[in-house]
Design a binder for these strands. Structure first.
Length: 457
RNA sequence: GGCUGCGUAGCAAAGUGGUUAUGCAGCGGCCUGCAAAGCCGUAUACAGCGGUUCGAUUCCGCUCGCAGCCUCCA
């Protein structure tokens, strides 16, 4: 029985889809004006894992993850570079898809873009104005009247009085209330714009997600996810917009993943302390990054450091090593392990415990006479996490840099060593082994006189 | 200031009102020409102070420390 921690109630709740077995899940995706960093990778990997597991449980999932391809920062960045904003966003959407594929993140079923959803956005704003939840401000922008929405603040646990007391943003004079937020922003000369009943302009950030999610999944759907920082105000505003517009409950389960940190500080674009996925991929293989992300619970903070990535690489190597030399043909799964794995995942997607089950399985596999059922179970369960699907030899012999000795040279040295060993010239054999070791190649003499090799990460 | 959440062994990370998490590193052993890998054994914990309890790392309170949101951010 799957339980999900629901930010709305601050409790783990038994997951019950609205229309079993169908499940709708919407995740707030990227604003595409730069490369994805490891924080973005965490969102992609976490919700990819959620999606995989929901499907494993037999749910018919529709997974929607949007792309924000118009906003102030995109316009600014495109201007700085003297290019059309669409050229900028196309480039970074492609880069995002590359990163996604590298991390074994399966694409969402629908990937709507804000700029392709303008009619839906305009409709929703019109609806909100008609119902008295929105108004045109003195500068022509359209605003949402937060005071009209009675349960505002429920998701983030805030109340309007506290928010006003803590107000420290420059108050936009065009608003009736400082908490009101923009739904439609009038274009300045030269800015990208779309037709609307209020004139040429562009959508505010929050409204696009309300429009795209309800269009793709219906007014009321099951799961909405995103990073912790979106809880307020973004998701709070989404609820206010959607529920005011449709008159229905918006979302049943809200999921928020924790941050990636660097030196105990949130990794973010504004702090500038981020590592992009493609930078990190120069040093670590993609599966190691995925393992690193899944090694802690999705709601916990995740500290980024070389030491942690190195550990992840060693741990993953242990799992691949266990599978080495086992032909994975058909075999029934070992139910005990499947059960333990599912219990872990059913507990709010506890991937850390699920991985511990894989290590227990690996130990038994290493001991077992008949390795097949263990190997098949290990590979199958790991597959639900998007792990251990690479060819074993390819993983063990590969590296991030693809530099160093080529395989032919390594094999050559191994045969020279074998000859030395055959003549009991141990010093010479060991010298060759040390030479390879110095270049990151580890040898393993196995039963039967064969020598296997692998690259250290 | 308001609101969240966290503080577990050398490092990382789960979890639990009484019994082995797990990975890496350490120590002892087995295996090996020696290694590597693997296996077996083993040490090091639950921020501090009170309270509830037969018993608390686990529940409650306080203190200290850290992070996040309250502003664009995954």
């Amino acid at each position: 029985m799957l339980k999900i921690y629901n930010t709305l109630t601050r409790n783990k709740e038994v997951f019950q889809p609205r229309q079993h077995p169908k499940v709708g899940m919407y995740v707030c995706g990227m604003t595409v004006y730069d490369y994805c960093h490891i924080g973005h990778a965490r969102v992609m990997v976490v919700f990819d894992t959620v999606a995989r597991y929901l499907r494993h449980l037999g749910y018919e999932l529709t997974y929607v993850r949007n792309v924000t391809d118009i906003d102030d920062k995109i316009i600014q960045r495109a201007n700085e570079r003297g290019e059309a904003f669409t050229a900028l966003t196309e480039r970074f959407i492609e880069a995002m898809h590359e990163d996604e594929r590298a991390l074994s993140v399966l694409p969402p079923d629908i990937e709507p873009r804000a700029t392709q959803s303008i009619p839906d956005i305009v409709n929703m704003i019109q609806n909100l104005i008609a119902k008295g939840y929105a108004y045109v401000g003195s500068n022509g922008d359209v605003f949402y009247a937060v005071g009209q929405f009675a349960s505002y603040g429920q998701l983030s646990g805030k109340n309007i009085e506290d928010l006003q007391a803590g107000e420290r943003v420059n108050v936009d004079q065009a608003k009736r209330d400082p908490l009101d937020f923009v739904l439609w922003k009038m274009a300045k000369p030269g800015e990208p714009s779309w037709e609307s009943p209020w004139g040429l302009g562009r959508p505010g950030w929050h409204i696009e997600c309300s429009a795209m999610s309800t269009c793709c999944l219906g007014n009321h759907f099951d799961i909405h996810g995103g990073g912790m920082d979106l809880q307020f105000p973004h998701h709070e505003n989404e609820i206010a917009q959607s529920e005011a517009s449709t008159g229905e409950t918006f979302v049943n389960y809200w999921m928020h993943n924790g941050f990636v940190r660097v030196n105990e500080e949130k990794m973010s674009k504004s702090l500038g302390n981020f590592f992009t996925v493609r930078e990190v991929l120069k040093q670590y293989r993609p599966e190691i990054i995925r393992f690193f992300i899944l090694s802690s619970h999705y709601r916990s903070p995740l500290n980024y450091s070389d030491e942690q990535l190195n550990d992840a690489g060693l741990a993953l190597t242990r799992l691949y090593t266990a599978l080495r030399g086992v032909e994975c043909s058909e075999s029934p799964l070992l139910e005990d392990y499947v059960k333990r794995f599912e219990e872990a995942m059913n507990d709010d997607f506890n991937t850390a415990v699920a991985l511990a089950v894989l290590f227990d399985l690996a130990r038994e596999l290493n001991k077992a006479e008949n390795k097949l059922p263990y190997a098949v179970t290990l590979k199958t369960l790991a597959g639900l996490l998007g792990l251990l699907q690479d060819d074993v030899e390819k993983f063990l012999k590969g590296s991030a840099s693809q530099q160093g000795l080529d395989e032919e040279a390594i094999e050559q040295l191994i045969s020279e060593r074998a000859a030395a060993k055959a003549n009991k010239q141990w010093a010479q054999a060991d010298a060759i082994r040390d030479q390879l070791k110095a270049q990151g190649i580890v040898l393993e003499d196995v039963a039967g006189g064969q020598t296997l090799w692998r690259r250290e990460n």
